[in-house]
Design a protein around this nucleic acid. Structure first.
Lengths: 346, 346
DNA sequence: ACAGTAGGTGCAACCGTTTGCAGGCGTGCT
DNA sequence: AGCACGCCTGCAAACGGTTGCACCTACTGT
């Protein structure tokens, strides 16, 4: 169209409230009111019709930036994830985004990479951009202070990863129950010697899973072979490393292994296959999260289901509620065990 | 100031440029200059030091919204993905985000769900928020017009999914070469009867992959068993459906199948396993994308590698370049074949 | 010693919307 | 017939920064 224009000022062409007002022969404030669904009744029917007609004839598009400056609301919600590559977080994000969409909000997403400095930096950026609220999926113990202080500026909800000793509202799963579920499942299959591949301690999910698991182990008199380390990050490579560590350090191998998430289970699976240790014939394996691909692995992975999508939805609703000024109540979802091919009776 | 205000207004406490100026005893414009790295040399050393000291004593955080209103730049880049659940897109996003980060930009992400209306809506929202640029990963043929028209307002680059007959800059992979690679691989293994599980026609990647594949099939005199449909969307379920369709409709089964992406390959794998058709013993399977989990499937999936991360990086750089006013040149990356366990000599 | 200059700072307009306040006009009521 | 009230619209001041311009001071050069 305007190909000879200097590309610098693309915005020069954008039509503003004033343009509409001028063309419709009214004052800008009238246009503003006519277009605001909350108060367009205060404008005479005929005027409003004319304005609306002119508005979309000109292709008027409200400038959220200007609106945000005046009103303080930008219609944007920040989401901080640890790592988009973890297929457990994408459903959460999906859930959040779907919920926000109904209110015309758009998510702004950043990855913390489980790095504290980065997390702090991201929060700063988001607040700088005046997000209306933030959903943190990446909370680690070390992040508590920055999150809490940021929450004085914009409401924050924790989703997927809880935090100990915080007043921040959270929607998470009962990880202890999940850990118990895994242990009870294995016990019911007759396993006596078990082991855990633990996720990092500073992500509250993992110690809780471990505690739940161990509580059942103790209660039922099973033996837990300890792996002398835990994952730095809950990823495939660390699952491999821990599995190898388990194989090296234990004289008497456990007959069942509980990996603290599916990604680590995948890593464990790879190591076992490579050493020709059959799953589930030689060792049963239970994962956690029920990530989308879990059922398609070979063998299909027995795992504790984390209703990621639901967590996302609830978190979205919670943010919406907070933005509307409603108080929030923590939400804890119940896990369930999905029994598939990677575990069997011994 | 208005201290008796209702605490609803969280922003009331935020410190502004004026607060800093007042406390430092200078004019707001001086503070603005002192804090702007591009022109802080125009402020006397000592003044600047004092200002900076006051600024972070007060915890001043620039308001990007206000800045954006005046300057037109919001420091935000929109990313439109079709579906975050597709593990092929997350590395792209990761790459984009990592590149943007170095310039202090933050991505705003939305999912189009491969729905045209939604795509149009998303673009509208993003432009409304004055994103500085947009990276579209979800382009379909039907979206061409809205994308092109949006690009008159903010620069847009296409990544991961090309578009036919467009002038929009794109960074993609040579899909025809990828299709050829798959066919050549199978031909080299001695396969004569082959088939394709095709992705949707309106996502340009897929027809190109099909064309590349078919060109080799023709050139080398192979036989292509046609599947009488294509996937609605490139997902697991559709892969299953097409695989079942193939099994039902073909009298003489092919010895090798080329799925247009890894997700569909996973679906095909599930169907084959369920019918006790062994992979690769009875039929070889080749996927596309080399998604993160591809090597961990059983059998590990032979696939055409799509350098998603690299595509993301390049797309990020391209946007950065466009924002800096540099012209852009299309980028086409070369695919490579990753031979793993799902294909074998016949 | 004086004009010229450059460095440092203040002034004020502006970016596009929102919103409290005020005013004009027509209507219903007494 | 006059008054009050309500509806509709205009006016102007914000919101928090940025930036061209003007101004002042203290140099430098001759």
């Amino acid at each position: 169209m305007n190909s000879k224009q200097i590309p610098t000022d693309r915005w020069s062409g954008s039509v503003t409230l004033n343009d509409v007002a001028r063309k419709a022969g009214v004052h800008p404030s009238t246009v503003s009111r006519a277009l605001d669904p909350a108060k367009h009744l205060r404008v005479k029917e005929s005027t409003r019709e004319r304005i609306i007609e002119v508005a979309d004839e000109l292709g008027y598009r409200p400038d959220m930036v200007a609106r945000g400056l005046k009103s303080g609301k930008t219609g944007t919600v920040g989401i901080v994830a640890a790592d988009l590559g973890n297929t457990f977080v994408t459903p959460i994000i999906h859930g959040i985004a779907a919920t926000l969409e109904s209110s015309g909000l758009l998510p702004t997403i950043a990855e913390s990479q489980d790095d504290h400095a980065r997390m702090a930096n991201i929060l700063d950026h988001m607040l700088s951009r005046r997000v209306d609220g933030i959903v943190a999926l990446a909370a680690r113990a070390a992040d508590r202070k920055v999150l809490e202080s940021a929450s004085q500026i914009a409401p924050i909800v924790l989703a997927g990863r809880p935090l100990d000793r915080t007043t921040l509202p959270q929607v998470v799963q009962d990880n202890e129950a999940g850990g118990r579920l895994a242990a009870e499942h294995l016990a019911a299959l007759g396993h006596r010697r078990v082991a855990q591949l633990r996720g990092p301690d500073d992500v509250a999910n993992f110690p809780r899973r471990a505690a739940g698991f161990t509580s059942v182990v103790d209660a039922m008199g099973l033996v837990e072979v300890t792996v002398p380390d835990r994952a730095e990050r809950p990823v495939v490579e660390e699952g491999q490393r821990l599995m190898e560590l388990l194989l090296e350090t234990s004289i008497d191998l456990p007959t069942a292994v509980f990996a603290h998430n599916d990604l680590m289970a995948v890593g464990a699976l790879a190591v076992l296959r490579q050493r020709s240790i059959r799953v589930p014939d030689d060792v049963s394996l239970v994962g956690y999260n029920d990530m989308p691909m879990a059922g398609h692995l070979t063998p299909p992975l027995t795992t504790v289901r984390y209703q990621s999508l639901e967590v996302g939805r609830r978190a979205g609703e919670m943010i919406l509620g907070l933005l509307a000024g409603k108080p929030s109540e923590n939400i804890t979802l119940a896990p369930s065990l999905v029994s598939r091919g990677s575990s069997r009776r011994v």
